[in-house]
Structure formats: structure tokens, C-alpha cells
Design a protein around this nucleic acid. Structure first.
Length: 472
DNA sequence: TGGGGTTAT
DNA sequence: ATAACCC
């Protein structure tokens, strides 16, 4: 996909068509075969995508840890919020992101467990992704509890195993959206049904091997798969056949329910008088492009019709590790340092277990302010190579230099001679590299991604330079 | 609102 | 470095 970004011809539609072709060639066989024969595969643009969505994930993990919680209304608490809860609790009126006090009023029997430490959730989350990767390596994570899998190839292979008289015996697994009739003479139907069978196998494997239940949605793209996965809710699955696509997308009550249309875009659209999916579908594309920019406008307009050509991008290992803590008030440098040290201890453990080395560290703060939605500030800098070397070696005095760096970043953001009031601190390790690519030598210049790519593409160049310690 | 993540500008 | 998006 990186290559597509850098070598596309610049025209949106052409890039898309070309991208689809190239993906199909890759999907059809070996990537190394790309140069021998570049022939477009049959069925070049109809995919089978599954969206897998775990039921109240954190609560499930807690119930597995402590089975006594299983038949009780359970909420997972972070600070003063119930961030998620099991279905027992939902029946009694507890909602996601509900204030703890309100939740207790609604449901005095509610059992609360603290979920501020994400370690066990993160570990279980990756076990799910890895299980799904056994089916097909093309798995994209969305948060800790959702995954997309591109089943196109698997479905093709299963169909090739079938005799022609077996095609008419293919059955659906789970629900069919809108109770639509299946047409076994329609190859698109057949492919989606096979997708639904694979989805059922995935859910079975998740339950048998990890003890987790969840929903799945099968459709021809990510948007539709995601929307349809939520139609029958706990622990069920639904397949969307093409004829019911418009029914699904128009069943949404508000444009903000379309994934990809977030807070800002919603506000902007509402200002234009657009609230329903139908409003958006029929709105002038020219005006939309002027208000939101051509890229966003064209993308969300397509989304409103249920069209989404974005590929399932394998997530692979994480791009960053971060730990954050929020609080009512932090107003001294000494306290900030203590909090940063705590975050750092957990982070160093995580980075050590990962094996790769972060080459950049970032400090993020949130200042107390009357009302500023999204008030985070950050400073980042490269991690000195001698510190990187010590990072996974069990040498725990990587703490001292890292704290020094972070406190410099801190003082660069916060004038400690003036009163301040912070409500959040976060430390992030990013720019992860497999091994010590920082070896000296004449070749190093050509092997450093930031320099190589920046020099002939422009796409990956750093527009902002990291703060360097020498600047202080 | 929490404690995470991603990509684009 | 920030802003948008996702959970």
C-alpha cells in the first residue's frame, strides 16, 4: 500500500482502480510473481470482508479472570467512569461511559472492577488478532476489540474445492440482513454465504480457545461489514447481501453513526442542515467539497451510499506504545516527575517485551482549562542511541537518562516558574525499529528510511523536526 | 468522559 | 506538533 501511495498517478479514480488491480494480483498469488504476469484477476472488485466485534470486551476479560463475576452486573471503571459493562448490567440500565455515581444510583448492586491498567485487555486483544490471522493474514485492528479480515481469497479457495453440484447446497451461517432471500444462482450471494461460514468458524475458535464471545458482520466492504455486525447484538452474526445495502445505510438515524464521520465533520454537516443519511446522499457535492475539502467530501459522500473501497490493511505489530494517567490536579514539577516515572516503568517493560526499539519519545500533557475540547500539547525528541542500546538489555538504569529527557521536554512545554495546572500526563514511545539500524558506516545514509524516502518521494519526509536536546 | 490507538496535514 | 478519526 505504501507503494501505491507513492507511485499512484495522482488522479483519485485512476489510483483506486489501479490499487484494486494491484491488490488483486497480490491476493491471487505470490507477491514475487507480480513482475512475471500482471493480469487482472476475475472478480476484480468484489471482496468478502468480515468485521469481528467482541461483546463488552473489558467486562468479558474480567469475568474470565474472576468467574464469580459472571452472573452479576459488572462494570469496568476508569477514574469516575464506567467505561463498559456486561449485559447483566445493561439490562439494569447501566450504559457505556456512564458516571459511576449515576450508574450506582441506577443499579446499586453493580459490581465495579478497576480497568485503568490495560495490560490484560491488550494481551487478550492481540490473542484475538493472532487467532484471526490464522484464517487469513490480512487482519486490521480497530481499537482493542474489533478486527477486519479480508476473506476474499479464502472464499475463492473454498469455492474451488466445491463441485458444481455442491454450489446449490451452500448455506448461510447466522442471520441474513433484512431477511433477504438468498439466490444460490448468484455468485455474489454464494461468496458471502461462504464468508458467513468462515465468520462462524472464527467465532467458534474465539470461544473454544479464548473463551470470548462476539459479533461478526460479513459484507463486500469494511463500512458495510462493520455496520451489519451490530445488527444482532450479543454473540450473533449477520451477512449483508448486496440488494439490501441501501436499506442498511438508510436504517441509520443520523450521519454521525457512519464510521468515518466524526465529531468535527458532524458539526460541520449539521451547520449545512445535513442530519440524515439521505440528506447527505442528495447534497450538492460541490458545496460539500468547498466546506470540507475535496478529499473528505468525496470520501464521506461515498460512505453515505455504502461505498468504501479502503483496503483491509494488516495492522502488524503496534506503531507506538503509550501510557497515560489523568487526575484532578498536578501543579508541581516534583509531582509531575513522579507521575512520569510511573508511566515510564510500565512503558519500559512493554517495550522490553516487544523486542523492537523505539527511536522517539514523546510527552503529552493536558492543561486544566475552562472549556477547551481537545487541549493536548506534546513535545517529542529522538532517543539518544546509547540509551536505545540499553533499552531491552535488562539494564534498568535506562530510567535515569529517560527521565532526564522527559523532564526537559516537560520544561519545554510548561513554564515551571509560573503556576500551572495539569490534568493529564502521557508518555509515548514511537518510531519503532526492528533492530539497531543505527550502525555506523557509509551505507547508513541510504538505509535510513526518513532520508531515503524523503529524498525522492516527499510523502514520508518529516515536515516538523523533533526537538533536539541541544536546543535547550 | 478514559486509556488507549491510527493516519493526514 | 497538531488535528482528525477509531475503539
Amino acid at each position: 500500500w505504501v507503494e501505491l501511495e507513492e507511485e499512484g498517478c495522482g488522479n483519485e479514480e485512476d489510483d483506486e482502480a489501479w490499487a484494486m488491480e494491484l491488490l488483486d494480483v497480490g491476493a491471487a498469488g505470490s507477491l514475487q510473481g507480480v513482475h512475471d504476469q500482471v493480469l487482472p484477476t476475475q472478480n476484480s472488485s468484489t471482496r468478502v470482508i468480515v468485521h469481528v466485534d467482541l461483546d463488552c470486551f473489558y467486562a468479558q476479560v474480567e469475568m474470565i479472570s474472576n468467574p464469580e463475576l459472571k452472573d452479576k452486573p459488572l462494570g469496568v471503571q476508569q477514574k469516575y467512569l464506567v467505561v463498559t459493562c456486561n449485559y447483566e448490567a445493561r439490562k439494569l440500565g447501566v450504559k457505556k461511559l456512564m458516571n459511576v455515581r449515576v450508574a450506582k444510583e441506577k443499579c446499586p448492586q453493580l459490581v465495579l472492577v478497576n480497568g485503568e491498567d490495560l495490560t490484560r485487555y491488550r494481551e487478550m486483544s492481540y490473542k484475538v488478532t493472532e487467532l484471526l490471522e490464522e484464517f487469513s493474514p490480512v487482519v486490521e485492528r480497530l481499537g482493542f476489540d474489533e478486527n477486519f479480515v479480508d476473506l476474499t481469497e479464502m472464499v475463492e479457495k473454498r469455492l474451488q474445492q466445491l463441485q458444481s453440484d455442491e454450489l446449490s447446497a451452500v448455506t448461510v451461517s447466522g442471520h441474513v440482513y433484512n431477511n433477504q432471500s438468498i439466490n444460490l444462482h448468484d455468485i455474489l450471494h454464494i461468496r458471502l454465504l461462504v464468508g458467513s461460514q468462515i465468520a462462524a468458524e472464527m467465532r467458534e475458535a474465539m470461544y473454544n480457545r479464548l473463551g470470548l464471545t462476539g459479533c461478526a458482520g460479513v459484507a463486500s466492504n469494511k463500512l458495510l461489514a462493520k455496520l451489519v455486525s451490530g445488527v444482532f447484538k450479543p454473540n450473533q452474526q449477520t451477512v449483508l447481501l448486496p440488494e439490501s445495502c441501501q436499506h442498511l445505510i438508510r436504517s441509520l438515524n443520523h450521519i454521525k453513526e457512519i464510521p468515518g464521520i466524526g465529531y468535527k465533520t458532524t458539526k460541520c454537516l449539521e451547520a449545512l442542515g445535513i442530519t440524515s443519511v439521505h440528506d447527505l446522499q442528495t447534497f450538492s457535492s460541490k458545496i460539500l467539497e468547498k466546506e470540507l475539502g475535496i478529499l473528505v467530501a468525496q470520501r464521506i459522500l461515498k460512505l453515505s451510499f455504502g461505498e468504501d473501497n479502503s483496503p483491509v490493511i494488516p495492522s502488524g505489530p503496534p506503531q507506538s506504545f503509550s501510557e497515560e494517567d489523568s487526575f484532578k490536579k498536578c501543579s508541581s514539577e516534583v509531582e509531575a516527575k513522579k507521575r512520569i516515572e510511573e508511566l515510564l516503568v510500565s512503558l519500559l517493560n512493554r517495550v522490553c517485551r516487544d523486542g523492537r526499539k523505539p527511536h522517539t519519545v514523546k510527552l503529552i500533557i493536558r492543561r486544566y482549562s475552562s472549556e477547551k475540547h481537545y487541549g493536548r500539547e506534546s513535545r517529542q525528541c529522538p532517543i539518544p542511541s546509547h540509551v536505545i542500546q540499553k533499552l531491552g538489555t535488562g539494564n534498568y538504569d535506562v530510567m535515569t537518562p529517560m527521565v532526564d529527557i522527559l523532564m526537559k521536554l516537560f520544561r519545554n512545554m510548561v513554564n515551571v516558574k509560573m503556576p500551572f495546572h495539569l490534568t493529564l500526563l502521557s508518555v509515548c514511545f514511537c518510531n519503532l525499529k526492528a533492530l539497531n539500524t543505527a550502525k555506523k558506516g557509509p551505507m547508513d545514509y541510504y538505509l535510513t528510511p526518513s532520508l531515503t524516502t524523503a529524498s525522492h518521494s516527499g510523502k514520508r519526509s518529516f515536515k516538523m523536526k523533533d526537538t533536539h536536546m541541544e536546543d535547550f
